[in-house]
Design a protein around this nucleic acid. Sequence first.
DNA 1: ACCAAAGAAATCCTTATGATATGAATAAAG
DNA 2: CTTTATTCATATCATAAGGATTTCTTTGGT
Lengths: 295, 295
Amino acid sequence: MNFDQLQSFVHVAELGSFTAAAERAALTQPAVSLQIKLLEQRLGVRLIERVGRRAQPTPAGLELLTHARRIIQELAGAEESMVPHRSGIAGRVRIGSGATAFIHLLPLAISKAKAKMPGLDITVRIGNADDILRDLEANSLDLAVVTMPASGRSLEVEAFYEDELMAVAPKGAEMPAAGPDAAFMSEKTLLVYEGGNTRRSIEEWMSAGGVRLKPAMEFGSVEAIKELVAAGLGWSILPGLSLKRDRTDFLEARPVRPKLARRLGIVIRRDKHLTRGLREVLKALRETKAAPASA
Amino acid sequence: MNFDQLQSFVHVAELGSFTAAAERAALTQPAVSLQIKLLEQRLGVRLIERVGRRAQPTPAGLELLTHARRIIQELAGAEESMVPHRSGIAGRVRIGSGATAFIHLLPLAISKAKAKMPGLDITVRIGNADDILRDLEANSLDLAVVTMPASGRSLEVEAFYEDELMAVAPKGAEMPAAGPDAAFMSEKTLLVYEGGNTRRSIEEWMSAGGVRLKPAMEFGSVEAIKELVAAGLGWSILPGLSLKRDRTDFLEARPVRPKLARRLGIVIRRDKHLTRGLREVLKALRETKAAPASA
DNA sequence: ACCAAAGAAATCCTTATGATATGAATAAAG
DNA sequence: CTTTATTCATATCATAAGGATTTCTTTGGT
């Protein structure tokens, strides 16, 4: 049972002639005869009544005609619906990211990609690196922006942004000009972001400085910590990214000594097919790297 | 663009695997790979994302999936619709009916239709009017015989049989010669058929007579009620149809006053194509109307 | 104007082969 | 002793070549 057979049948029924139907389908007349014959065999029903030189649908043919027309129309609709996808007008990119990277890095990149490709459908999932990477491996995400290192052998990591960690204090607090070191920081009331790679980096940095991290409180939100520090409740060590934009008039920030940075990476599956939308987003991200958070 | 290709695509998308899809279609895996590839080439869109050992539909694929499913379903419908026409004489008519109408009206009509068309395949579904009509609209039934009124804009109703409701009492009970009225009946122990249009008619009839229906017991089977009345457990009001045949020697039956009848209708879909089998059954039914339950 | 038969063309399927990812088992390191 | 790399076996999809089937055209009836 073929589309061609149905199409030919419709033509024959409409035109009342095998020859005319053949002509319209750019076929020879015997080909059409055969198609109808096969269709009739397949369905076990006579579809076209050959009387004299007229070809006329039987009752069964008449009923099939309505079905066939609908099927052909549906088919055209299916084809039609693929056009936006074909021309690269439509697309989808599912991004996973940590909260900080998302807030300060992705909006610009997303808007750039959207400007290039208005039909692009971008979704973002915020989560911790582990979950994000698991989803990436399961291919329920197309792209991730997470703190390195990112494990997983099926994943490809591209260094993307170096985000220096800063000591943060309330405005007016005194801070060593060369930057506070681990010993200095360990004497302050520390509000720390809980969990994640960033937290681990800070712990290692303090260990290297000979002291242990003794957080006074832990929070799940960098934004919350910023507010608390600004209100004078303690010090913190936060990603520079999160300090670029606002609250600078209530906060004192300086790079720690020795320098400590977390490196953000763009992660995709090694075998991921790069759609146009995905390429646009990647390009926009790499451009953002050059001029970060300038918005 | 082939049905097979679409079918394979649907299978791959649903099963998430080329190999599994191949197995289901009784093909080899490369055949399925090729079909998908050709389909993708034809449409100019990537439909299945092959990532790792999993296969999942792209956004374009997801959209095509809905179309493809519909097309395949339409095709099956087309094929199905040819079955009644097949081999001239064979066919199938699916009838839905209430239990009473079925037992006393349909057997005769069915045997008549079968005599005319021995190859005809007739199936009957018993149920309440609502379910039957729903199935009729869904085209999983071809014809229904139910108590009117039958709602449904896509349905065509033909009045078919007037079935007088009779007061039924155990043999020997005294009954007004002109027929019992509502007041009279309300003093008896009443066994009533539960639910349905017939029940509603009786309620209205008693309301019109100034009394309320106070059933002693309700049953789901007219046959059961007949037995109980015959056993002297009470009175009832039943369709005359159900009293024509048997048990007359144990039952006293008389039309109620004022006369009360339920009207049975033949219902088909307005756009239903009349196959020969269906026409035969309709004809047989209309003949039965003239000489009801004489068998 | 449609049907039938035979050869030609195209399509489609299968077998065989290769590449890649996954999962388990094993070895190495903190 | 748990965690992280490495290795190997296995499962999956892609590709290529050969062969079988289908389908079309040509030619000659009815």
